[in-house]
């Protein structure tokens, strides 16, 4: 049974339908990559799973519990689902350690000492323990994204949603961020990530889903999607990606 089940999800902004019946399953310890042209609704889907956007139809289930629709405690849900955005993640008025410990102390009511100790362990793992007292604007973009990941991890989520977390970064900073995601995948973290890094998707993904015109147009293991796509649209999309030199 799938850890995360997305069944027939519809999402519209006014008259504009972004998602028109998305079906997608994520099994525990799997890494699922969402690919698709810009504006196809990858970010929107991730925000819906996290309850940051309301859906207009369909159902989202996490560990067989309905997490979409009326009567849902969004704050509870979000404690279990960490999300990292493309940019503007960190709180600029807080130091790195304050960013990481905010939610554990305020939401989980962890003691400050305990939260800081845990935060330091995590920061050490990404090699940023020396930057704990720095403010985000003094960090490089890559360091900021690593802190953002750690901040989400500090809540010990069961599922991580990563939304194009490297697309705002200079190429030489991309790998330091991807290395962390790679480590998380090895440790068995369940992840759903939207990405334009096809090479990376090929390497870490258990499954790749091609989102097109508001539905999952094609899905399958990375070898099949990248090597032998069945659908015409998928082929066209990948061809453009290859032409852009990103695969």
């Amino acid at each position: 049974m799938a850890f995360l089940e997305i069944k027939g999800v519809h999402k519209e902004f006014g008259a504009f339908q972004v998602l028109r019946g998305v079906n997608l399953d994520v099994i525990e310890h799997q890494v699922v990559c969402l690919i698709g042209p810009s504006g196809c609704g990858k970010s929107t889907l991730l925000r819906c799973i996290n309850g940051l956007e309301k859906i207009q139809g369909g159902e989202i289930r996490l560990e067989d519990d309905r997490v979409s629709g009326p009567g849902i405690d969004g704050d509870k849900l979000r404690q279990n689902v960490g999300i990292v955005f493309q940019s503007f993640n960190l709180f600029p008025h807080m130091s790195v350690i304050e960013n990481v410990t905010l939610a554990p102390t305020k939401v989980l009511k962890m003691s400050r000492v305990e939260a800081e100790a845990k935060a330091m362990v995590l920061l050490k793992r990404i090699g940023l323990e020396a930057k704990a007292r720095e403010y985000p604007d003094r960090l490089s973009g890559g360091q900021q994204q690593r802190v953002a990941i750690v901040r989400a991890l500090a809540m010990e989520p069961k599922l991580m949603l990563l939304d194009e977390i490297t697309s705002a970064l200079d190429p030489e900073l991309v790998s330091e961020v991807l290395n962390i995601v790679r480590d998380l995948a090895k440790q068995g973290m369940t992840m759903l990530l939207a990405t334009h890094e096809m090479g990376f998707a090929k390497e870490v993904a258990s499954k790749v889903c091609f989102l097109y015109e508001g539905v999952v147009h094609e899905e399958g293991p990375p070898a099949q999607i990248f090597g032998d796509p069945k659908e015409e649209r998928t082929r066209a999309f990948l061809k453009r990606i290859i032409e852009a030199g990103r695969l």
Binding site: K76, K106, A152, M155
Partner: peptide, 27 residues
Amino acid sequence: IHWSQVSAARSLGLSYIQTMRYVIVPQ
């Protein structure tokens, strides 16, 4: 304050009030 700060705070499980109290109002 950029709305993504609200998203970032809410996504960590902070309530609306906590988001205002710790993230938005201080900035």
